[in-house]
């Protein structure tokens, strides 16, 4: 019986320690280790560039980049303290905030270029498709990388702007790398892609029918870097240093697009030919608050959330 009790206690301890795993990146001397979780896509090029340029080291930070498959895995990692900062699109952050997750944005990530037809994301159809405008997408099958998130809400916004009815668009979830093949095979009628798939599709003869980010709001802010309220209040120094290094990195990437294209080879499988041709997102110095509010309103309109949360508490 005592052995059984001991085993039970051990199991309980295991459970407890599994729940409360965290790290102490502030402890010890030398440079503070900073863990940042990102998805290895074009949008986060400034981070890799900033690391190369030594912007994080200048702040006394030892940047450790943890790559994640999707944004969904990043939020829990940040909230539980396994990583200090994460990268996510704003619709996900708004969803998390509306459920009461204590998140805080510490810096801008990337934004739409604001130029229709020359944005880093858009809706493609096959060359011979009868779909000519966003309005024609009504009733069609459209692939997005995640349902109930930024891409389907902005495609709906695009359709509404063109005077169409997005109610009966059939969105299907497909990973970006699978989309062009599905479009080619006729499994879907249109795909919402971002770079490098946009350029790849256009080169293969697909046709752009909508720049959904541009249609949603001028200078639409897409994603940002965030932390948990806990990290924000317990490690204010770390947050300050990170935002400073981030700002510097964003500024550098915006001023040196060729360097940004070059750094893609370091962490993605994008070929140099595509890397030199693709459309880079904008890396602004600040978050466009109005566009975050637009995303929150769209999320509520499309039923992702019941009430629009206070975006002021989320933003820096």
């Amino acid at each position: 019986m005592t052995r059984f009790r001991a085993a039970l206690a051990a199991a309980g301890l295991l459970l407890l320690s599994a729940c409360g795993s965290g790290n102490d990146s502030d402890s010890g001397g030398g440079p503070a280790t900073l863990k940042l979780s990102v998805i290895p896509i074009v949008d986060v090029a400034p981070i890799y560039l900033g690391q190369q340029q030594g912007f994080f080291a200048e702040q006394g930070l030892k940047l450790q980049i943890v790559t994640a498959q999707g944004g969904a895995a990043i939020v829990p990692a940040v909230v539980s303290g396994q990583v200090d900062f994460g990268f996510s699109n704003y619709t996900s952050l708004i969803l998390a905030r509306s459920k009461g997750l204590p998140l805080k944005v510490v810096g801008p990530g990337n934004a739409s270029t604001g130029q229709a037809g020359k944005d880093f994301g858009g809706v493609l159809v096959k060359a011979g498709s009868p779909i000519r405008t966003p309005k024609d997408l009504a009733g069609k099958r459209v692939a997005v990388n995640t349902l109930n998130n930024i891409n389907d809400t902005t495609v709906r916004a695009s359709i509404r702007k063109a005077g169409g009815d997005p109610a009966n668009v059939r969105f299907t979830e497909l990973a970006f790398p699978d989309m062009l093949a599905a479009l080619d095979k006729g499994n879907v009628d249109a795909v919402q892609v971002v770079e490098p798939f946009l350029t790849t599709g256009l080169k293969a003869g697909d046709r752009l029918v909508a720049s959904n980010y541009v249609d949603t709001a001028p200078n639409l802010t897409i994603a940002g870097y965030f932390t948990s309220q806990k990290t924000a209040s317990s490690k204010p120094e770390l947050v300050k240093k990170f935002s400073a290094a981030l700002q510097e990195s964003l500024r550098y990437a915006a001023a040196h697009p060729d360097a940004a294209r070059k750094v893609l080879a370091a962490y993605t499988k994008i070929s140099p030919a595509v890397a030199s041709a693709l459309i880079l997102p904008k890396w602004p110095a600040s978050v466009d608050r109005a566009s975050v509010d637009t995303l929150a309103r769209l999320a509520q309109q499309d039923g992702l959330i019941k009430t629009v949360p206070d975006t002021g508490g989320l933003l820096p």
């Binding site: 969904a72 969803l95 459920k99 997750l101 692939a143 349902l147 109930n148 969105f171 979830e173």
Partner: peptide, 19 residues
């Protein structure tokens, strides 16, 4: 992958929506 219904699909949706 490419789902629109199902238990697995719904669980993933809940997870992403932080429900």
């Amino acid at each position: 992958f490419a789902a629109g219904d199902g238990v697995g699909f719904t669980i993933v949706q809940f997870q992403r929506g932080f429900a």
